[in-house]
Amino acid sequence: MFAYIVKRIAVAIPTLLILIIISFLLMHAAPGGPFTSEKKYPAQVLANLNEKYGLDQPLWKQMATYVWNIVRHFDFGPSFVYKDRTVNEVIAQGFPVTLVYGSISFVVATIVGIALGAVAALKQNTWVDYLAVGISIGAQVLPSFVIAPILVLVFTLWLGWLPGGGWEHGEVRYVIMPVIALSTAYMASIARITRSSMLEVLTSNHIRTARAKGLPEWKVILRHTLKPAMLPVVSYLGPAFVTMITGSVVVDMYFSTGGIGRSFVDAALNRDYSVMMGVTILVGALTIFFNLVVDILYAWIDPKIRY
């Protein structure tokens, strides 16, 4: 197990390097640069800018300097667009926000999703089941960019219960709508996976044995059904967790949360090279890390799996 973890971490580093190279090349190949502007700047002004930000260097050198600064000083450079901020500052400000609403959404989606899926499985082929399945497919196909404006319309404009946007350091009133908008689709997926996984376990032999032994039904469900049924759920939750804590463009756009979800898209469109790279590396590193966590969890839940 330990050797396996070490091996995985060893692979993570070249993976990140490949990610950096791909993104770097794609980014610089895109037409226009951070200083392309509607009012074209005189050549001298552009030359000064390129010199200041090192864009006058050959590409390989820029890339090498970039990686070196990260390794040496954990310095991701200055933002090209937010001129009085560094990438570290941009991420330090936005990531905690997404981490908060992402984690809450994750917990909500997991609890509600598993509960919904489990109930549906236990009441298979009753109206409860059909309702639960209907809700989960519906919730899954309804895009969050439809849910978000509806939420604002209902809870802010019509009912006046919740503020339509802002973050205010994570005050509860400001967190509710982002969490609903972000968690819905994940909740639906978790419910569907839980349902079919539970159904499979419920029809398996060891449940039949447990029942035959005369164990009370709640014990059968809690002890013998839920844990094994969680395997596929866990493998879904790992990547889902990463996507959720790295935020959502839709949430940041509609609720002015100031999270990191929008940073990448903005940075890509503004050609803010350094912010784009910073966010990509952050998301890549988190993905690799949580994939590893999932594998370890997997081994813990299902001792049959050995690496």
Partner: peptide, 19 residues
């Protein structure tokens, strides 16, 4: 495949379309 799976692909799609 494992390496590619840990690349945030939505980002790459956006980059491709931008590029």
């Amino acid at each position: 495949v494992d390496i590619l799976l840990s690349i945030p692909f939505m980002f790459v799609i956006i980059l491709l379309l931008v590029m």
